[in-house]
Protein backbone atom coordinates (compact mmCIF):
# COMPACT_ATOMS: atom_id res chain seq x y z
CA UNK A 1 0.00 0.00 0.00
CA UNK A 2 1.02 3.56 -0.74
CA UNK A 3 0.14 6.54 1.44
CA UNK A 4 -0.24 10.00 -0.08
CA UNK A 5 -2.07 13.19 0.87
CA UNK A 6 -4.82 14.70 -1.25
CA UNK A 7 -5.91 18.22 -0.30
CA UNK A 8 -4.36 17.59 3.10
CA UNK A 9 -6.18 14.26 3.69
CA UNK A 10 -4.13 11.08 4.09
CA UNK A 11 -5.22 8.53 1.48
CA UNK A 12 -4.20 4.90 0.89
CA UNK A 13 -3.76 3.60 -2.63
CA UNK A 14 -2.52 0.52 -4.45
CA UNK A 15 0.76 0.54 -6.29
CA UNK A 16 0.09 1.49 -9.93
CA UNK A 17 -3.14 3.35 -9.24
CA UNK A 18 -3.52 6.87 -10.59
CA UNK A 19 -4.07 10.01 -8.54
CA UNK A 20 -7.57 10.16 -10.02
CA UNK A 21 -8.45 6.65 -8.82
CA UNK A 22 -7.15 7.41 -5.33
CA UNK A 23 -9.09 10.67 -5.23
CA UNK A 24 -12.29 9.00 -6.36
CA UNK A 25 -12.10 6.49 -3.53
CA UNK A 26 -11.41 9.29 -1.05
CA UNK A 27 -14.49 11.14 -2.31
CA UNK A 28 -12.47 14.04 -3.73
CA UNK A 29 -13.87 15.36 -6.97
CA UNK A 30 -11.47 16.04 -9.83
CA UNK A 31 -13.14 17.09 -13.10
CA UNK A 32 -12.32 14.95 -16.15
CA UNK A 33 -13.27 14.97 -19.81
CA UNK A 34 -11.00 12.77 -21.94
CA UNK A 35 -10.76 10.09 -19.25
CA UNK A 36 -13.32 7.30 -19.36
CA UNK A 37 -13.31 4.24 -17.12
CA UNK A 38 -12.72 1.13 -19.20
CA UNK A 39 -10.42 2.95 -21.66
CA UNK A 40 -6.71 3.65 -21.32
CA UNK A 41 -5.94 7.12 -19.95
CA UNK A 42 -4.63 9.62 -22.50
CA UNK A 43 -4.01 12.88 -20.62
CA UNK A 44 -5.36 14.82 -23.58
CA UNK A 45 -7.71 17.45 -22.18
CA UNK A 46 -5.80 18.57 -19.05
CA UNK A 47 -9.00 19.30 -17.12
CA UNK A 48 -7.90 16.93 -14.36
CA UNK A 49 -4.67 18.86 -13.70
CA UNK A 50 -3.54 18.66 -10.07
CA UNK A 51 -0.56 20.21 -8.34
CA UNK A 52 2.07 17.93 -6.82
CA UNK A 53 3.65 19.82 -3.90
CA UNK A 54 6.39 17.25 -3.47
CA UNK A 55 7.42 17.74 -7.12
CA UNK A 56 7.91 21.49 -6.69
CA UNK A 57 4.28 22.35 -7.51
CA UNK A 58 4.35 20.65 -10.90
CA UNK A 59 1.01 20.32 -12.68
CA UNK A 60 0.20 16.78 -13.82
CA UNK A 61 -2.94 15.12 -15.20
CA UNK A 62 -4.47 13.11 -12.35
CA UNK A 63 -5.93 10.55 -14.79
CA UNK A 64 -2.54 9.55 -16.15
CA UNK A 65 -0.18 9.98 -13.18
CA UNK A 66 0.50 7.04 -10.86
CA UNK A 67 0.58 7.60 -7.10
CA UNK A 68 3.86 7.66 -5.22
CA UNK A 69 4.68 7.08 -1.56
CA UNK A 70 4.61 10.36 0.38
CA UNK A 71 3.21 12.37 -2.52
CA UNK A 72 1.39 15.58 -1.54
CA UNK A 73 -1.29 16.51 -4.05
CA UNK A 74 -3.49 19.59 -4.31
CA UNK A 75 -6.64 18.66 -6.22
CA UNK A 76 -8.66 21.82 -5.60
CA UNK A 77 -7.36 25.35 -5.29
CA UNK A 78 -8.00 28.79 -6.71
CA UNK A 79 -5.10 28.33 -9.15
CA UNK A 80 -6.46 24.99 -10.39
CA UNK A 81 -10.00 26.33 -10.66
CA UNK A 82 -8.74 29.19 -12.83
CA UNK A 83 -6.64 26.85 -15.01
CA UNK A 84 -9.50 24.40 -15.51
CA UNK A 85 -11.85 27.21 -16.39
CA UNK A 86 -9.35 28.59 -18.91
CA UNK A 87 -9.01 25.14 -20.52
CA UNK A 88 -12.78 24.85 -20.82
CA UNK A 89 -13.04 28.31 -22.34
CA UNK A 90 -10.47 27.37 -24.97
CA UNK A 91 -12.50 24.28 -25.86
CA UNK A 92 -15.60 26.42 -26.30
CA UNK A 93 -13.75 29.12 -28.27
CA UNK A 94 -12.13 26.64 -30.63
CA UNK A 95 -15.25 24.99 -32.13
CA UNK A 96 -18.88 26.05 -32.53
CA UNK A 97 -20.81 25.10 -29.42
CA UNK A 98 -24.35 26.36 -29.62
CA UNK A 99 -26.02 24.41 -26.84
CA UNK A 100 -29.57 25.53 -27.66
CA UNK A 101 -29.04 24.10 -31.14
CA UNK A 102 -27.26 20.86 -30.21
CA UNK A 103 -28.37 17.23 -30.17
CA UNK A 104 -26.76 16.80 -26.75
CA UNK A 105 -28.33 19.82 -25.06
CA UNK A 106 -29.06 18.74 -21.49
CA UNK A 107 -27.00 15.52 -21.68
CA UNK A 108 -23.53 16.85 -22.36
CA UNK A 109 -20.44 16.43 -20.21
CA UNK A 110 -18.88 19.62 -21.59
CA UNK A 111 -22.00 21.67 -20.87
CA UNK A 112 -22.17 20.20 -17.33
CA UNK A 113 -18.49 20.93 -16.70
CA UNK A 114 -18.98 24.56 -17.74
CA UNK A 115 -21.80 24.91 -15.20
CA UNK A 116 -19.86 23.06 -12.49
CA UNK A 117 -16.66 25.05 -12.93
CA UNK A 118 -18.48 28.39 -13.05
CA UNK A 119 -17.69 29.20 -16.68
CA UNK A 120 -20.42 31.81 -17.14
CA UNK A 121 -18.85 33.22 -20.31
CA UNK A 122 -15.87 32.66 -22.60
CA UNK A 123 -13.20 35.34 -22.23
CA UNK A 124 -11.23 34.27 -25.31
CA UNK A 125 -12.37 35.33 -28.77
CA UNK A 126 -14.41 32.64 -30.51
CA UNK A 127 -12.78 31.25 -33.66
CA UNK A 128 -16.04 30.57 -35.57
CA UNK A 129 -14.29 28.34 -38.08
CA UNK A 130 -16.53 26.30 -40.38
CA UNK A 131 -16.54 22.56 -39.59
CA UNK A 132 -18.41 19.82 -41.41
CA UNK A 133 -21.06 17.32 -40.38
CA UNK A 134 -20.87 13.77 -41.78
CA UNK A 135 -24.23 11.99 -41.95
CA UNK A 136 -23.15 9.23 -44.32
CA UNK A 137 -23.39 6.45 -41.72
CA UNK A 138 -26.73 4.62 -41.66
CA UNK A 139 -27.19 4.88 -37.88
CA UNK A 140 -24.94 7.66 -36.60
CA UNK A 141 -23.62 11.12 -37.40
CA UNK A 142 -20.55 13.15 -36.54
CA UNK A 143 -20.56 16.94 -36.11
CA UNK A 144 -17.01 18.29 -35.92
CA UNK A 145 -18.37 21.62 -34.63
CA UNK A 146 -18.93 19.94 -31.26
CA UNK A 147 -15.81 17.78 -31.04
CA UNK A 148 -13.35 18.44 -28.21
CA UNK A 149 -10.73 16.01 -29.60
CA UNK A 150 -10.80 13.97 -26.40
CA UNK A 151 -10.17 10.74 -28.33
CA UNK A 152 -12.69 8.71 -26.33
CA UNK A 153 -14.22 7.48 -29.62
CA UNK A 154 -10.78 6.53 -30.94
CA UNK A 155 -9.97 4.46 -27.84
CA UNK A 156 -13.46 2.93 -27.49
CA UNK A 157 -13.33 1.71 -31.07
CA UNK A 158 -9.75 0.41 -30.94
CA UNK A 159 -9.59 -0.93 -27.38
CA UNK A 160 -13.10 -2.26 -26.76
CA UNK A 161 -14.63 -2.96 -30.17
CA UNK A 162 -11.27 -3.84 -31.75
CA UNK A 163 -12.22 -2.17 -35.03
CA UNK A 164 -9.80 0.81 -34.85
CA UNK A 165 -11.95 2.81 -37.25
CA UNK A 166 -11.24 6.25 -35.81
CA UNK A 167 -7.99 8.18 -35.88
CA UNK A 168 -6.83 11.78 -35.83
CA UNK A 169 -5.84 13.77 -38.90
CA UNK A 170 -4.49 17.31 -39.20
CA UNK A 171 -2.88 19.39 -36.48
CA UNK A 172 -3.73 21.79 -33.67
CA UNK A 173 -7.23 23.20 -33.70
CA UNK A 174 -7.69 21.85 -37.25
CA UNK A 175 -7.33 18.27 -36.01
CA UNK A 176 -10.27 16.05 -36.98
CA UNK A 177 -11.30 12.59 -35.91
CA UNK A 178 -11.62 10.61 -39.11
CA UNK A 179 -12.90 7.17 -40.05
CA UNK A 180 -10.35 4.93 -41.77
CA UNK A 181 -8.26 7.06 -44.12
CA UNK A 182 -10.62 10.02 -44.20
CA UNK A 183 -13.47 8.67 -46.29
CA UNK A 184 -17.07 9.33 -45.19
CA UNK A 185 -17.92 7.26 -42.10
CA UNK A 186 -20.68 5.45 -44.01
CA UNK A 187 -18.10 4.04 -46.41
CA UNK A 188 -15.77 2.75 -43.70
CA UNK A 189 -14.63 -0.83 -44.28
CA UNK A 190 -13.67 -1.35 -40.63
CA UNK A 191 -16.70 0.09 -38.77
CA UNK A 192 -19.01 -2.61 -37.44
CA UNK A 193 -21.76 -0.12 -36.59
CA UNK A 194 -21.62 -1.09 -32.91
CA UNK A 195 -22.07 2.47 -31.64
CA UNK A 196 -19.50 2.25 -28.84
CA UNK A 197 -17.85 5.47 -30.03
CA UNK A 198 -21.20 7.25 -29.86
CA UNK A 199 -21.82 6.05 -26.30
CA UNK A 200 -18.29 7.08 -25.29
CA UNK A 201 -18.46 10.60 -26.79
CA UNK A 202 -18.93 13.22 -24.04
CA UNK A 203 -20.43 15.87 -26.35
CA UNK A 204 -22.85 16.21 -29.23
CA UNK A 205 -20.09 15.40 -31.75
CA UNK A 206 -21.19 11.78 -32.15
CA UNK A 207 -24.90 11.09 -32.07
CA UNK A 208 -27.56 8.60 -33.04
CA UNK A 209 -29.71 9.44 -36.04
CA UNK A 210 -33.45 9.59 -35.65
CA UNK A 211 -33.35 10.45 -31.97
CA UNK A 212 -34.67 13.70 -30.58
CA UNK A 213 -32.46 15.80 -28.30
CA UNK A 214 -34.37 14.65 -25.22
CA UNK A 215 -33.66 10.98 -26.12
CA UNK A 216 -30.01 11.53 -26.97
CA UNK A 217 -28.71 10.19 -23.65
CA UNK A 218 -25.27 8.61 -23.86
CA UNK A 219 -24.17 5.54 -21.90
CA UNK A 220 -20.42 6.04 -21.43
CA UNK A 221 -20.40 3.59 -18.49
CA UNK A 222 -21.12 0.78 -20.95
CA UNK A 223 -17.46 0.72 -22.02
CA UNK A 224 -16.34 -0.32 -18.51
CA UNK A 225 -19.23 -2.79 -18.21
CA UNK A 226 -18.22 -4.51 -21.44
CA UNK A 227 -14.55 -4.76 -20.48
CA UNK A 228 -15.45 -6.14 -17.05
CA UNK A 229 -17.81 -8.76 -18.48
CA UNK A 230 -15.23 -9.94 -20.97
CA UNK A 231 -13.49 -13.19 -20.01
CA UNK A 232 -9.83 -12.59 -19.33
CA UNK A 233 -7.12 -14.58 -21.05
Amino acid sequence: MITLTLDGVRVQAQEGETILQAAKRAGIRIPTLCYLEGLSPRGACRLCLVEVRTWGGRLVPACATPVQEGMEVVANSERLRELRRAILEMLFAERNHICAFCVSNGHCELQDLAAELGMDHVRYPYRWLPFSVDLSHAKYGIDHNRCVLCGRCVRACAEVEGAATWGFSGRGIFTLVEADLGEPWGQSKTCTGCGKCVQACPTGALFEKGKATSEQVKRPAILLEITERRPRA
Partner: peptide
Amino acid sequence: VAFGDCAVTGNVPSLRNPI
Protein backbone atom coordinates in the same frame (compact mmCIF):
# COMPACT_ATOMS: atom_id res chain seq x y z
CA VAL B 1 -26.33 42.06 -17.50
CA ALA B 2 -25.90 39.71 -20.48
CA PHE B 3 -29.41 38.26 -20.40
CA GLY B 4 -29.62 34.80 -22.00
CA ASP B 5 -27.30 32.73 -24.20
CA CYS B 6 -27.38 34.99 -27.28
CA ALA B 7 -26.04 37.88 -25.19
CA VAL B 8 -23.55 35.63 -23.37
CA THR B 9 -22.16 33.49 -26.22
CA GLY B 10 -23.66 34.70 -29.52
CA ASN B 11 -25.74 31.48 -29.52
CA VAL B 12 -28.29 31.04 -32.34
CA PRO B 13 -27.52 34.33 -34.16
CA SER B 14 -23.86 33.25 -34.23
CA LEU B 15 -24.77 30.21 -36.36
CA ARG B 16 -24.06 32.52 -39.31
CA ASN B 17 -20.60 33.45 -38.06
CA PRO B 18 -18.57 30.86 -40.00
CA ILE B 19 -20.31 31.99 -43.22
